[in-house]
């Protein structure tokens, strides 16, 4: 098995009187693409926030191999754009990451070029369409050159062409030496992108297996039901 990127140890998170994440232990492999699957409200977004360090677990812990968290970035389900141009949104993130002032613009333009958004560089970011904002958010995250990239349903509001493009970019980013942890509802996408599947249901891990095994023969009843349910719709 591949080297571990991070280990989740009996993670638990409560909010609003409910236990949203319960007894989650897992070993996320480095330099692989881990896809978190699960129905709405399963706790995918909460789990990613815990891994990314935006939420503090009530008990348990997130342990990064090597002892300290690597450079990481996250693209949220609903990305937040600053009220400034697309390019400035990227250079802002680079400034926070400590990139030298002289280098920010070039680096930002370079990434925008690679995601095919260079023509939007000078546009105010908040008036872009939802799908465009999603891709700017991906570019902003990528520009940070993270060792781990968390993607929360990165293609949820994209049209098929843009989705395919984002999937391609995720492949490129991963091939660049970045570990990917992403959530999706889309089984086809999971099939195309995942190396490993982390299937969660009601805040617990139902299954954590290599993608090939998962799709060939899901081991848990919930996962099997999820696959059947989803397939019967498509």
């Amino acid at each position: 098995m591949a080297e571990a990127l991070l280990t989740l140890e009996a993670l638990r998170f409560d909010a609003g009187g409910h236990t949203l994440i319960d007894s989650v232990s897992a070993r996320i492999a480095a330099l692989r693409r881990t896809v978190i699957l699960g129905p709405n409200g399963a706790g995918k977004s909460v789990l990613m926030r815990l891994m990314h360090g935006l939420l503090e677990p009530v008990s348990g812990r997130v342990h990064w191999s090597g002892g300290k968290a690597p450079v990481q970035a996250m693209v949220f389900q609903r990305p937040v754009m600053l009220r400034r141009s697309v390019l400035d949104n990227l250079t802002y993130a680079l400034a926070l990451a400590g990139v030298a002032a002289g280098e920010r613009r070039t680096r930002a333009m370079d990434v925008l070029q690679r995601v095919g958004l260079a023509h939007l560089a000078s546009r105010p970011a908040r008036v872009l369409s939802g799908g465009e904002q999603q891709r700017v958010a991906l570019a902003r995250a990528w520009a940070l050159r993270p060792a781990v990239l968390f993607l929360d349903e990165p293609t949820a509001s994209l049209d098929p062409g843009a989705s395919a493009e984002v999937e391609r970019l995720i492949g490129v980013i991963a091939a660049d030496g970045c570990s990917i942890v992403m959530s999706t509802h889309n089984l086809g996408q999971a099939r195309r992108l995942a190396d490993d599947i982390l299937f969660i249901d009601s805040g617990r891990i139902a299954e954590h297996t290599p993608a090939a095994d998962f799709f060939a023969a899901p081991r848990s009843a919930q996962a099997e039901q999820f696959i059947r349910g989803e397939l019967s719709w498509t």
């Binding site: 926030r49 935006l54 990305p79």
Partner: peptide, 21 residues
């Protein structure tokens, strides 16, 4: 969440919000 994800300190976040609003 977005600003904390990007690593903004509290004073930096306050400045950013003043500019954005």
């Amino acid at each position: 969440e977005q600003l904390r994800s990007l690593g903004a300190s509290t004073p930096r976040a306050a400045c950013t919000l003043l500019i954005d609003t």
